[in-house]
Design a protein around this nucleic acid. Structure first.
Length: 208
DNA sequence: CCAAAGATCGTCT
DNA sequence: GACGATCTTTGGA
């Protein structure tokens, strides 16, 4: 879309820790076609040593190939047979680390997003959750592996979020990860009404 | 070939 | 808080 400037490749400098990138992605813009949103919630997945990461132990499979590819590219997979999740690869090829994009503040194409949801969702619910993001922006695994620094599906510069406005918590839905399940590698914009869950919530707030 | 599981979401009690 | 939907992917027989 016009009016957005693609993120500079230096955003994914090799020396940058994936958790730092996860925090820096807060406030940046995700664009696909005529839909766009500001990233307000992310999770870091730290590769082969992280039991919560799909690439834990160096596991490889066709689905995971983009995760082993260059940084700034998308890794998208189908989950539970009905939803997709979008990740941004953060490290040079061969280092399978990434950031899961968990929630956006919708900025453009809200009507299309609501239409795709098939129901009347308030803006705060349109992109509150990884599955909802992919539904709203029409992302699926045909886009896994694409470069997010070019094209019509890309990351654009936004205003970063200052450290004091960033909260952290354990990652969502990784109870299978043993000793890594409680690592506080989920990051969110404090007080944002667009995040998928507020710490302390066991379940999502009811529709309203 | 077949079984099992899954980085979720919506609905129902 | 619990449960079911839905189907690809993976690993083992």
């Amino acid at each position: 879309m016009d009016g957005y400037r693609v993120l500079d490749p230096s955003f994914f400098a090799p020396e940058r820790d994936t958790r730092e990138i996860a925090r820096a992605l807060l406030g940046q813009i995700l664009v696909h076609g005529t839909t766009a949103g500001r990233i307000v919630e992310t999770e870091a997945y730290l590769g082969v040593s992280d039991r919560a990461c799909h690439a834990w132990g160096g596991k490889r499979s066709p689905r995971l190939e983009p995760l082993y590819g260059p940084p700034g590219h998308a890794y998208i997979y189908l989950i539970y047979g009905m939803y997709h999740c979008l990740n941004v690869v953060t490290k040079p090829a061969g280092q399978p680390e990434c950031v899961l994009i968990r929630a956006l503040e919708p900025l453009a194409g809200l009507e299309a997003m609501a239409e795709r949801s098939g129901r009347k969702l308030p803006p705060a619910q349109l992109c509150a959750g990884p599955g909802r993001i992919c539904r709203a922006l029409e992302l699926d695994r045909s886009l896994s592996g694409v470069n997010l620094l070019a094209g019509d599906f890309f990351l654009a510069e936004g205003n970063g979020v200052p450290a004091e406005r960033i909260g952290s918590s354990p990652r969502i839905g990784v109870d299978y990860a043993g000793e890594d399940k409680d690592r506080p590698w989920r990051y969110y914009v404090k007080g944002s009404p667009f995040i998928s869950r507020v710490p302390g919530d066991k379940v999502k707030p009811a529709d309203s």
